[in-house]
């Protein structure tokens, strides 16, 4: 029996929300895991780096009381190492998440790829060479995760999905809607614009079975907006009722984001 189900049955409490989070070893992933591991059962999907939080592979120890049962260790993330660009890995990650927790309430498509072309799109073959990978990681993998999770778990559970407010948050970028001259973001920005539009289409189609789909479009973090404010934006979208929205995070650090009217 998956952990989440057994915990709910044994305590009589509502089970914690299960979050499948890709790119969990990066700056935003680690911040989200640190902040929300006590509230969510997080499946932290990592390629090379793992978030520095308690997991099935990692725990805290007090050097002066090494046998003490620390509160932080009771909320461990479940890390899964996977290269989502490889065939079959997306499906395997979903299988593992469902086997571990029995359901997924929130999918956060955070894994991304960015390579700037500082000298412009016209400078040699760099932009052409990097195009496919940008669209593979930033568009195709979020699409595959959404489709496969929909097919494997969500599409025949419309009432359950609505009852549990299940949803997807795609981590996009403000670059997907604005041009920041001189940054060399052309290819990256185009992929994020595609992700934004994919978000709206997914929202329209997944509404049939009660799953919301939104995107978060932050400015650069942590330099312009705080990483914590982006993490809060994800949690906020998870608890909202909106769908088909792209939420800009372009406030001064440590302020909550405002909803962008698309």
């Amino acid at each position: 029996m998956p952990d989440g189900v057994s915990r709910a049955l044994s305590t009589g409490e509502l089970p914690r929300r299960v979050c499948l989070f890709t790119g969990a070893g990066g700056t935003l992933g680690a911040a989200f895991c640190r902040r929300y591991a006590a509230e969510y059962d997080i499946v932290a999907v990592c390629r090379t780096r793992a978030p520095d939080v308690p997991s099935q592979h990692e725990s805290y120890v007090d050097p002066l009381q090494p046998l003490a049962d620390l509160l932080e260790n009771q909320a461990r993330v479940f890390t899964v190492q996977a290269d989502l660009e490889q065939p079959g890995q997306v499906e395997q990650v979903i299988d593992l998440a469902l086997a571990k927790f029995g359901r997924v309430d929130l999918l956060v498509n955070n894994a991304g790829y960015s390579r700037w072309h500082q000298n412009g799109l016209i400078d040699g073959d760099g932009a052409l060479r990097d195009f496919d990978r940008h669209f593979a990681v930033n568009v195709a993998i979020p699409l595959r995760l959404a489709v496969r999770l929909g097919q494997q778990y969500w599409m025949h559970r419309d009432q359950d999905n609505r009852a549990h407010n299940r949803n997807i948050v795609n981590v996009s970028s403000l670059a997907g809607a604005r041009v920041f001259p001189g940054q060399g973001q052309g290819v990256y920005a185009a992929s994020k614009a595609a992700l934004n539009q994919l978000t709206r289409h997914l929202a329209a189609e997944f509404a049939v079975f009660g799953v919301r789909v939104n995107a978060l479009a932050p400015n650069s973090f942590p330099s312009v907006v705080s990483t914590e404010s982006v993490a809060r934006g994800i949690a906020r979208l998870d608890h909202e009722s909106v769908t088909g929205r792209v939420l800009a995070v372009d406030a001064p650090p440590d302020q909550d984001p405002d909803l962008d009217p698309n």
Binding site: H57, E58, Y60, D62, P63, L64, E72
Partner: peptide, 24 residues
């Protein structure tokens, strides 16, 4: 008196590639 000079009371125990502990 280690209590007075230790700043970090949350060292990290890791299982892979073999059991070890790190602390910053």
């Amino acid at each position: 008196s280690l209590e007075s000079i230790l700043a970090n009371r949350r060292w990290v125990r890791r299982d892979t590639p073999f059991p070890h502990v790190v602390a910053g």
